[in-house]
Design a protein around this nucleic acid. Structure first.
Length: 498
RNA sequence: GGUCCUGUGGCCGAGUGGCUAGGCAGAGCUCUGCAAAAGCUCCUACAGCGGUUCGAAUCCGCUCGGGACCUCCA
């Protein structure tokens, strides 16, 4: 059995994964900021790390997966008017900040469920951990790596860089940073331009505010992740994930804060997913090219040719390696939609197949070997830094064989009993349990099934007496309703709801 | 400007120096009362120019193109 290898952003190489505590894995992933609705770009990390979570569990690890909810509202640290994004929007919408946060948190959870992502083990909120964040800042000040100015607290990057490797994760050189940081308001408080805020004093109109040793204010934009990761996973844990765009400054700052506070580097394996792009450009709210989940699922957007099922999005994401960019287009999504349909239907047929034959041996040794070879590669691909795209490619290579067995042009006994079972079992494990793919069609309704059975029986009778006018009428009218009837090769009928 | 990534067939995308990934679209055939599916076959690409090598999409250099981060950002 091959070992799991993970590409570690810190070393920029694939490393064999060995957890800190045998049998257990601690994983932290940067979660959503719930000041607005999440969009397609956000689906990437959550699907990616859902698969990581699922696979680690499949390998037998007990995983504690922590994904935060940022509800404190990151202020624009060096913005023209240091203000809380959430509080500003709350005024516009005439809502309480927490009402807004609640609304978007619910919307996020709803979308995550539709994407069939498993719930994290712990989903801590920033506002629920103000005490921990203040505690952490106090420790950093006590160690001399942070200073207070006018009720705000800043991290002393220059001092940190003198003793530790600031920029290691993102490949940045501290001197360059000092030169390239732009001249913005609020800089005069800092001793150095590269310093970042741990705690920010709140202006009177600022709605989200907490009492602290330095006065009324709110936490800085990196400290929440450090505080919550430390609390739930310990000072040093296995995996930290997030989007590549968070590598700097967010994750770099997390390392600095935690290193000072806990006296060791917090993360062993850093994982970063790449971006979803539109016409080659990163999808993002500020670029105005983002598509929200509700738009995606309803098709309600000028850039969408139609609505897309969440499973299509999930499949679309998994067809590319997580460290590559993924370009959005209607054409690409529709290709994914058709491909998923083909794969899923073959999969469903496979699960219904029963192997028949007198011998447990393979009737077609060459085919048997090919099939078992393709299946055994699943694990190898997954262990190679989660190459989900390759697994799906192998699954597609198995589809013709599966469909031929369904159509009885290949006997089920062409495969040995062992390979046949392996095929059924591993397809289920990898497609459903690990990749987390589900049926796209509407939930099965017992009564609908019964009605359809009746309709199909009537049509079968009509065809039996060559009454094609009736049989075609049934099929055509069902198609208008959105139900596709198919005559299978063995005389059976099946239907799919589109 | 600095740091880094990237350029694959009509489109999307895997690709560890040698053995045509895969999907979608397209073409032909088979099966079918007709469809729809499905099966079989075809479509053999790696930005350009050099170099290393017996051999390069894969390594190195240069040129051109695209992008990310340096500011909130998944």
């Amino acid at each position: 059995m091959s070992e799991l290898k993970i590409f570690n952003s810190l070393s920029r190489t694939k490393e064999v994964f060995t957890p800190l505590t045998p049998g257990h894995v601690g994983m932290y992933v940067c979660g959503p900021t719930v000041s607005g609705e999440s969009h397609l770009g956000h689906a990437r990390p959550y699907v990616t790390f859902d698969v990581v979570f699922r696979y680690l569990q499949h390998l037998g690890y007990k995983v504690r997966y922590v994904r935060n909810i940022t509800d404190a509202g990151h202020f624009e640290e060096e913005g023209k008017e240091a203000e809380d994004k959430i509080s500003k929007k709350a005024v516009l919408e005439k809502l309480e900040p927490m009402e807004l946060v609640h609304k978007y948190t619910n919307l996020f959870h709803w979308a995550m469920q539709r994407f069939n992502t498993l719930s994290p083990s712990i989903e801590p909120t920033a506002t629920g951990h103000i005490v921990e964040q203040i505690g952490m800042i106090e420790k950093i000040i006590a160690d001399g790596y942070a200073y207070e100015v006018n009720g705000s607290v800043y991290f002393d990057v220059k001092k940190y860089a003198a003793n530790f490797d600031y920029g290691k994760l993102s490949g940045r050189v501290i001197d360059d940073l000092l030169e390239t940081t732009r001249d913005l308001d609020g800089q005069e408080e800092k001793r150095d331009r590269a310093d970042f805020a741990l705690w920010k004093s709140a202006a009177p109109e600022h709605i989200m505010r907490w009492q602290s040793p330095w006065g009324v204010g709110f936490p800085g934009w990196h400290i929440e992740c450090s505080a919550m990761a430390t609390k739930y996973l310990g000072p040093r844990f296995d995996i930290h994930g997030g989007g590549m765009d968070l590598q700097f400054p967010h994750h770099e700052s997390e390392i600095a804060q935690s290193t000072i506070c806990n006296h060791e580097a917090p993360v062993r394996y850093w994982m970063h997913n790449n971006m979803i792009t539109v016409d080659g450009k990163k999808m993002g709210k500020s670029y105005g090219n983002h598509i929200t989940f509700t738009q995606l699922f309803s098709g309600d957007s000028p850039v969408l040719a139609k609505a897309y099922h969440p499973m299509v999005i999930r499949f679309f994401i998994l067809q590319t390696h997580y460290r590559s960019t993924l370009d959005f287009s209607n054409e690409a999504l529709q290709a994914a939609e058709r491909g998923l349909k083909r794969l899923w239907e073959a999969y469903e047929h496979l699960q219904k197949l029963v192997r028949t034959g007198d011998s447990d041996n393979a009737g077609d040794a060459a085919l048997d070997e090919r099939v078992s070879g393709l299946i055994k590669e699943f694990e190898e691909f997954m262990n190679d830094d989660f190459s989900t795209a390759k697994i799906l490619a192998n699954m597609f290579e198995l589809v013709p064989t599966i469909n031929s067995m369904k159509d009885q042009t290949i006997a089920t006994s062409a495969l040995s009993a062992a390979t046949f079972e392996l095929l059924q079992n591993q397809m289920r494990v990898y497609l459903e349990d690990i990749l987390g793919i589900q049926s796209v069609s509407e939930q099965d309704n017992g009564k609908l099934q019964a009605v359809m059975q009746l309709v199909m029986d009537i049509r079968r009778e009509a065809r039996g007496r060559k009454d094609f006018a009736t049989s075609d009428k049934i099929r055509n009218q069902l198609q208008e309703i959105g139900i596709l009837l198919k005559d299978e090769k063995n005389g059976e009928m099946s239907f799919t709801i589109s």
